[in-house]
Design a protein around this nucleic acid. Structure first.
Lengths: 245, 245
DNA sequence: CGGTTGCTTGAGATCCATCAATAGGAGTGG
DNA sequence: CCACTCCTATTGATGGATCTCAAGCAACCG
């Protein structure tokens, strides 16, 4: 089921039952995919867009030196590429971080639906906007925040995004990434990432054990990260992306 | 006139004369704006989208510490926000780097045009795709490239983008940014940026004087930067043809 | 069990930031 | 025209943040 996808989009516009039906019909039945599987590789590119329904994935780039930079973390409900932006070739990869459930969407059908239905259009643009927003915030981290601040910011972001799809339990959520994944997301070495984690632990802000992360002081960690929860443009569902007046 | 904008979009789809007319009509007459002027501040946000017709600008964020991170450089022909993605509030700023000519576009009209005209739709999506692509490449630089590599990569990118709007003269172009701007783009201090410039100069790759940058060894600088010119997804320049189909 | 994977710690090297000072150019006002 | 200031580029010196290399340890697994 496209559950997660629809639940997330509902934060971008007030979807009616029939809107949700339309969305459901755009999504193929999910398929199980093991951890560490390339998603583009399995797909007829311009015609199918993977949609993550369960599990985590990431968009990343491998440099010639072998270094990896993770560009974005994909959570349940996320499209591999946001609405409408599927190019005919991609210069980076998308792979699962954990075992996952992956469905397919026809990009053309998505666009058609957004032309036929203003509410869907708004929701899809909101989703695209959020992806861009998250990536820009990520750039700020990489350029101007210290290691611990970057880590704190990422944890705040994941916490907020997981909340949108109902995967947070009273300030604790499962964070299935290994330290090397986190390091490659934040542009750090694994050694230094490890020390940054200890930093946050030492400040009493988090604990992270057996893939469960819990935040002990939400205000504190947000302050350290200078995290502004409004940047996802989420919350109140009514929002316009420039729809005709 | 919307010259630059149209010229750039022509790299994303083969625009006919009438397509270009449609675009022209979407663009208000330009206004002169001095250097270092906030562009959002002057605009009724959800209803008007600034379009840079001449001069340079940047999208940036100021942190609480006072540090600045420049997220993207805007060149002639660039929209302040790519097609369709104008949120009703923005958590970063856009300001001119030089004196500039700025027009306004109605985002709603842009989207309407893209629904009525498949070629325009394709061109506008291409432009959005390119913005995302540039920003992702920027993330790779910030996360995983050394100072000199970052600088080299930025110069390669600007060179290629300026070529798309006909502002390169045989490997030299005017680069009106001061060193502090470059540093804030690349996540470096100005001192270190200065030394990175000397690095590239010392390698005989560039000269940069009086705001004119010339690349002496395009292959060399691209190799140092691991710059892949295909990442802009640009069509081979179609200066030859003004009409198609 | 031996091998692998992931986490942790220590030590030293490197990259880059910060601080401080100089110098040239551009504008400004007297 | 000169004195002044501001802005920008440059250079040196020092310190700090982060990387790399290396080793140890625990958990898991065939």
């Amino acid at each position: 089921m496209a559950q997660m996808f629809i639940e997330k989009l509902a934060h971008g516009a007030s979807l009616t039952v029939s809107d949700k039906d339309v969305l459901s019909n755009l999504v193929s039945p999910p398929r199980h995919v093991p951890a560490h599987t390339e998603l583009w590789a399995e797909v007829d590119k311009p015609h199918a867009l993977p949609l993550l329904l369960d599990g985590w994935a990431c968009r990343y780039r491998i440099l010639e030196t072998g270094a990896r930079q993770i560009l974005s973390i994909l959570l349940p409900g996320d499209l591999c590429e946001p609405f409408g932006t599927l190019p005919d070739f991609v210069d980076y990869s998308v792979a699962t971080l954990t075992a996952a459930e992956v469905a397919l969407v026809q990009p053309a059908a998505l666009r058609q639906a957004s032309q036929d239905n203003k509410t869907l259009e708004k929701a899809l643009w909101w989703d695209l906007l959020m992806v861009i927003s998250i990536e820009r915030e990520h750039m700020v981290s990489l350029g101007r925040r210290s290691a611990s601040e970057r880590l704190a910011h990422l944890l705040c972001e994941l916490h907020l995004r997981l909340e949108l799809v109902g995967r947070v339990d009273d300030l604790t959520f499962t964070l299935p990434m290994i330290q090397a994944d986190l390091a490659d997301t934040l542009g750090l070495s694994t050694v230094h990432l490890n020390r940054s984690l200890q930093d946050l632990r030492g400040l009493g802000l988090i604990t992270f054990k057996e893939k469960r992360l819990t935040i002990h002081d939400l205000e504190g960690i947000r302050q350290l990260a200078t995290f502004d929860p409004s940047y996802l443009h989420a919350q109140t569902p009514d929002r316009t992306v420039g729809t005709a007046s």
